[in-house]
Simulated assay, not measured.
Amino acid sequence: MKTFLTRLRTAFNDATLRAYVRLQIFAAQEPVRLRAALTSLVLAGAVLIPALADEDVARTIASIGVVVLPVLVGESARSRVTPDA
């Protein structure tokens, strides 16, 4: 018989993995919405945490998000949101 803590840990691990996979799918299908959501979180953090209101901190966080997101979701997502020149 599994103990309660083992079942609880298994359920937590399962929920974490499911959330991670859903986030990956959402990032691949809706990269623009994900960027907007991340920007909104940074702005909300600047209201709640005064240290984030510093211009350099906000710029650094935004730059990391813009660079890391296309790398994580792949080239196909980036090509869908890049305008044709």
Rank of each mutant, 00 (worst) to 15 (best):
D84H: 08
R59C: 01
L23D: 09
T10P: 03
A15H: 08
R18G: 08
P31M: 06
R22E: 10
R9E: 04
V73C: 08
I49C: 10
A28N: 07
Q24G: 09
S63D: 11
A44T: 12
A53W: 06
L8Y: 06
V81S: 12
L17P: 00
F4P: 01
K2G: 01
P83I: 10
I61H: 02
S79G: 02
R9I: 05
A37C: 07
A27C: 15
T3C: 03
T3F: 02
V68R: 10
T3M: 04
T60W: 07
P70W: 04
N13L: 14
L38C: 07
S76V: 06
K2Y: 01
V66F: 04
P50T: 08
R78L: 15
D54H: 10
G65L: 06
T6D: 05
A36Y: 04
T39K: 07
L43M: 12
T16L: 14
A11P: 03
L43P: 00
E75T: 14
P31F: 05
G65Q: 07
E55I: 09
I64F: 12
S76F: 10
A62G: 08
L8N: 04
D14E: 13
I61Q: 01
L69E: 09
T39M: 03
A37E: 08
E75L: 15
A46S: 15
D56R: 13
G65Y: 02
S63R: 08
A15Y: 08
F4D: 02
I64K: 03
G45K: 03
A77T: 04
A11L: 13
V32R: 14
A53K: 10
F12Q: 10
T6V: 06
V47C: 00
D84S: 14
Y20Q: 10
R9V: 05
L23P: 00
A53E: 07
V32T: 13
A11V: 04
L72Y: 06
S79Y: 11
V32W: 00
L17E: 11
E30F: 14
P83G: 06
L43S: 08
A19S: 14
T10A: 14
V71Y: 11
V71Q: 09
V66N: 11
V66R: 13
A28S: 13
R78P: 01
P83D: 04
R80Y: 03
V32E: 11
L48I: 11
A51P: 02
L5E: 11
L41G: 10
A37Y: 13
L48K: 04
R18V: 12
E75D: 09
D84L: 11
L48Y: 08
T39L: 09
A19I: 12
R33A: 05
F4Q: 05
E75G: 05
L43Q: 14
R7N: 05
R78E: 14
A11W: 05
A51E: 10
P31C: 06
R80W: 07
N13C: 05
A44P: 00
T10I: 00
K2D: 00
R22P: 00
L43N: 15
V81D: 07
V42P: 02
A85S: 14
A53N: 13
F26W: 15
V73D: 02
T16Y: 11
S63F: 01
A85E: 15
A37K: 07
V73Y: 06
N13F: 05
T16S: 15
D84V: 13
I25K: 12
K2H: 02
T82H: 02
P70L: 04
L23C: 00
